[in-house]
């Protein structure tokens, strides 16, 4: 049994030795670049399909839709919006568009509405089903007319992290015109409440939850997002998460 004991000890020692090696490799820029290389393959295989997320029945809707992510904004601007029952709210859509416009909440609700009961899949691993209503993102983009050089829609949000960095997200135009990409103003037949992103949030059921930005107040259409914040197309993307969040 001596030999087996020796082998077992060697394997345990090798495993214990792996942890610092793995962490060192993890922090190496070249390794990170190689690891990130599969994101484009995943987008090409999975993202480009344009398939629709499954829509559920009313009875599948969770009684409580879990709240996660940043704290609800509490600054003077957002408190003012709440106090005015969102009368002061404007969704500014500008950038590389023919007719930049600032939509009121009433104007968004006057556009053709769409409802979906879809599953929200968090990058952490959990899921929750909710019923969302609002206007298709594609309808809003059609209203302003993206120019021929338009590549991406950037979603600027009213929430900030503890160090004051604002949340933002992005979709390319193909993703933005996906029929289920929604600017939601209602959850489970109630007007969206502050904790779930009121008055307007994004819903992208074919990708992980961090794409579904809350508290959106500006959509900036751009050619590319290299010059915005960390240059990776989103708050979490700037922290190392995938821009294509369909996996």
């Amino acid at each position: 049994m001596k030999r087996q004991l020796f082998i077992a000890t060697s394997i345990s020692a090798a495993l214990a030795g792996c942890a610092p090696i793995g962490t060192a490799l993890n922090d190496n820029a070249g390794v990170r670049k190689v690891l990130a290389s599969v994101e484009g393959i995943d987008d090409a295989f999975i993202g480009s399909s344009g398939a629709l997320a499954r829509e559920y029945r009313e009875s599948d809707v969770a009684p409580v839709f879990r709240v996660n992510g940043f704290a609800t904004p509490s600054d003077a601007n957002y408190r003012g919006l709440l106090a005015s029952y969102y009368a002061k709210y404007r969704l500014v859509v500008d950038g590389a568009v023919e007719r930049p416009y600032a939509f009121t909440l009433a104007q968004l609700r006057a556009l053709p509405q769409s409802t979906q009961i879809t599953r929200h899949d968090c990058v952490e691993g959990w899921s929750v089903i909710g019923k969302w209503s609002g206007v298709r993102l594609g309808s809003v983009l059609d209203a302003v007319g993206p120019r021929s050089n338009a590549g991406f829609a950037i979603f600027h949000c009213m929430d900030r992290d503890d160090s004051g960095t604002p949340y933002y997200e992005s979709l390319d135009l193909r993703q933005a015109y996906h029929p289920q990409a929604l600017l939601a103003t209602s959850l489970n037949d109630e007007p969206l409440d502050p904790d779930h992103g009121a008055p307007v949030r994004l819903r992208v059921p074919t990708q992980l939850g961090y794409k579904s930005a809350k508290w959106v107040n500006r959509i900036e259409v751009v050619e590319n997002f290299a010059h915005i914040a960390g240059g990776n197309g989103g708050y979490w993307e700037d922290q190392g998460y995938e821009w294509y969040a369909g996996v």
């Binding site: 922090d27 994101e39 922290q239």
Partner: peptide, 17 residues
């Protein structure tokens, strides 16, 4: 775990590659 400290983004990069 890889990396040894808690980092979901990095764990996902390793896993998906």
């Amino acid at each position: 775990t890889i990396p040894s400290y808690q980092d979901l983004a990095d764990g996902r990069r390793w896993h998906l590659f």
